[in-house]
């Protein structure tokens, strides 16, 4: 065998070994993704007990991985498991939204700190009924109004930003998700 041929064979062996290992990682990642999907579906089931999951759409947002299209008493709703985080704590909540992006229900799941604002019921209640167009509060200055929440905290701003992104994402995409020929529809569940 010539030197070039031998070098090519060595390159091929190395690439094959790495390819095989990468394939194992890919398979592991697929299984982990399916497991995460099942776990989120179970958490969504606790939020809306009678709901049937119709479709699952993957999201590119760092704080929510999937949007679940569910049928709840004949009405189409969208749900997601959302990560709310700030410098001092992070929490997991589940959210139920209308196709217009209006937040219908929020349920606290877990947090890294028992002092996280989202573990307090009244904190999450403040975001109900909001949609992608009405951001509350828009800025710290708005919270100084007597009818608004006072003393904006970092948790409030971070939660508001994340839920507004979720709301906008659902309202922007809901129209295409209704169309079954839409390319956004990646996986279906019946």
């Amino acid at each position: 065998m010539t030197a070039i041929g031998r070098a090519r064979l060595e390159n091929l062996i190395a690439a094959t070994m790495l390819g095989f290992l990468a394939l194992l990682i890919a398979l592991g990642s697929l299984f982990a993704d399916r497991g995460a999907e099942a776990r989120e579906a179970a958490l969504i089931g606790r939020l809306s007990k009678a709901a049937v999951i119709k479709e699952i759409y993957v999201s590119s947002d760092p704080d929510f991985d999937r949007i679940f299209k569910i049928e709840d008493k004949g009405r189409i709703r969208y749900a997601a498991v959302v990560r709310l985080g700030s410098l001092y704590s992070s929490s997991l909540i589940s959210a139920l939204l209308s196709p217009e992006g209006q937040i219908l229900a929020l349920r606290f799941i877990a947090s890294t700190s028992s002092r996280a604002s989202s573990s307090i019921d009244t904190f999450l209640v403040s975001f109900l009924g909001r949609d992608g167009e009405k951001e509350f509060p828009k800025s710290r200055m708005e919270t100084q109004r007597p009818d608004a929440m006072s003393g904006a905290t970092l948790d409030l701003i971070c939660t508001s930003a994340t839920l507004n992104r979720l709301s906008s994402y659902v309202s922007d995409n809901a129209r295409t998700w209704v169309d079954p020929k839409s390319v956004s529809s990646i996986r279906k569940k019946d």
């Binding site: 790495l18 990682i25 990642s29 999201s59």
Partner: peptide, 21 residues
């Protein structure tokens, strides 16, 4: 890669393999 390959197919773990290899 994330938009067209990793996220749609649940292969986010391959990001760093793509980078290094």
């Amino acid at each position: 890669a994330r938009r067209f390959l990793f996220i749609p197919f649940g292969l986010s773990a391959l990001e760093v393999v793509l980078y290094m290899s």
